[in-house]
Amino acid sequence: MYLAKVTDFLTIQPETILGNLINTLILFLVLKFVLFDRVNKVIEARKNDVSKIYAEADQANANAKKLESEYEEKLSSAKEKSAEIVSNATKKAQMRSDEIISDAKNEAKGILEKAHGEIEREKKRAVNQIKDEIADMAFSVASKVVEKEIDPADNEKLIEEFINNVGEL
């Protein structure tokens, strides 16, 4: 008996195959309804999530790139500005130093001129002094000469000339 059942069990019968097929189909249908749909949903959801994440990541990347370029711009403009400031300061310093030098040159010129003026004045003063001394000497010599009494006739002439010429009292 057992052997008959076992051989029965071991032989392939078409009703069994059909039965199995129908079972499989029913199983598949049930699974589809119970499992596959849900699982697909989950997979869909995951797929969406992943897409979303990728999209966000791209966005973040784009933002980062934008920020980076902005930063680069700011940096370069800052570099420009600082270069400008430095060049201005340098220019100013150059002007200032030129100013100082020209002031010094002018002052030196002024001092020289003043010194020349002083020398000229001293020269004039000395010349005048000598001239005055000579005049004084001439005067005393003339006085000495005249002191030896003028010729009376000349004296008379002088006095007469005066009397003739005196115009008012």
Partner: peptide
């Protein structure tokens, strides 16, 4: 006065002396 004449009257003086002439010369040089 060395020579010439000097007149004084009231508060005035007219000096036509030789001394005055020499003085004037010296002053004009100065």
């Amino acid at each position: 006065i060395m020579g010439g004449i000097v007149l004084s009257y009231g508060n005035s003086r007219l000096d036509a002396s030789v001394r005055m002439r020499l003085e004037n010369m010296r002053r004009s040089i100065n």
